[in-house]
Design a protein around this nucleic acid. Structure first.
Lengths: 221, 221
DNA sequence: CGCGTCATTGATGTGCATCAAGTGGTGTGG
DNA sequence: CCACACCACTTGATGCACATCAATGACGCG
């Protein structure tokens, strides 16, 4: 929450996001069909958001970690159209949307911020569509790992080591692959010497190899 | 632009969107990398928006027709991250974004509208991710046709007859398929007696069959 | 310890991609 | 007006990446 906000405005924003909510591992922060009332900012823990069809198929649309916003899908029809599930015990800030909208009419820096959060989500989803529509399994998993490490690094964690909070099946759902394919692709990366994998503990050994995979397999390996 | 707006406010909004811009078939309304300054509302014609990787792969992220908004991707970084290409001679309203944001601070119904437009786009993209991540070719094409006819019907056109504005390749890119697969799938639908296809002229003969395909192939045909 | 969940690995199957040939509609220039 | 070129599209033959089916192995927890 950067420039253009004085301390009295800052205080009003802090009041707005004062209420917290805890969600247990496996629990739902919100679910498809529920009334929409608030956005949520992740404080601790990791979430997945997913959409479903009537016939039981579902698709993970994203993984959210500290600082990221959930619930934007609910604005348009005043009820949520996806589920947000905690992958570990987690805590979020509750941001009542009506009040947020009202406050953002006074504080233009806040309005700008909201626009950017929504636009960023649209751009992120463009990237996922590109991944799902035109990449092969190896490229998808490489892109996924690079994206995760980058976000973790931005939060002060190691750039080369991470602990996955999600199962192979959830990764597969996000990437449009089956869990066996995710597992095999991890094994392939290990054989190539690009990563170490011990259960959900991942260590990146050759970041550049993964980047080459994503940015143009035309160069070969 | 519904409730909560009086006539003087309406006039200010109309002034905001007064400027028009024509784009020739095949021309770009905006392109990846360009400075972002305005949103665009389609008046006539149909557009595609697409993202690309450095190595030349690209992905159509959507087709926009009358009344739909383009350019939301540009807000977050003040420059566009995708291309908007006219599929036929087209005209758009130019909506300078800074002024729109300012006006929406005064007119809360306008603010609500902007939030809804962005949220709707996020929800739409969730649907595309579900399609790309978990549907088979027939289901994808059926979903595409149903979505198109629905949008055309909402604009006063026939619910069962349409003229595609895009090539098989563009449809394929949107659906994560190759153009040959799109063509074969059309042929399959024709064999089944579900649609008539003559070039880009499509007539839906059995809407229900297509809907069944989308909402759960577990029931068989 | 024994059970459930998650992950790995192998064998086999299939949906879509790829490669390739041919058709039909459209526009252009002789 | 017709010949030609070009482009979008269709259709067939073949190949491959990933799905599916199945068995086994590694943790973690009551």
């Amino acid at each position: 929450m950067p420039v253009g906000i004085d301390s009295s405005q800052m205080q009003r924003i802090e009041e707005l996001v004062a209420t917290r909510r805890k969600v247990k591992r496996g629990g739902a922060l919100f679910q498809n069909g529920e009334q929409f009332a608030a956005l949520y900012a992740v404080r601790t823990g990791v979430f997945k958001t997913c959409v479903a069809t009537e016939d039981g198929r579902y698709q993970v649309t994203g993984f959210q970690m500290a600082g990221e916003i959930m619930g934007l899908d609910g604005i348009v029809h005043s009820h949520h159209t996806c589920d947000a599930i905690a992958l570990e015990n987690a805590e979020v800030c509750v941001i009542p949307f009506e009040q947020l909208a009202e406050l953002s009419r006074e504080i233009s820096a806040l309005q700008t911020h909201i626009h950017q959060v929504m636009s960023r989500e649209i751009v992120r989803e463009h990237g996922v569509m590109l991944l799902l529509g035109s990449m092969r399994a190896e490229e998808r998993l490489a892109a996924f790992l690079l994206n995760l490490t980058q976000r973790l690094h931005a939060r002060g964690f190691s750039a080369s080591e991470l602990v996955l909070r999600m199962t192979r099946e959830e990764i597969g759902s996000y990437l449009g692959l089956k869990l066996e394919t995710v597992s095999r692709t991890f094994s392939k990366f290990v054989e190539e010497g690009w990563v170490q994998v011990k259960q959900r503990h991942i260590r990146i050994l050759d970041m550049v190899a993964l980047q080459n995979l994503v940015n143009g397999s035309r160069f070969g390996s």
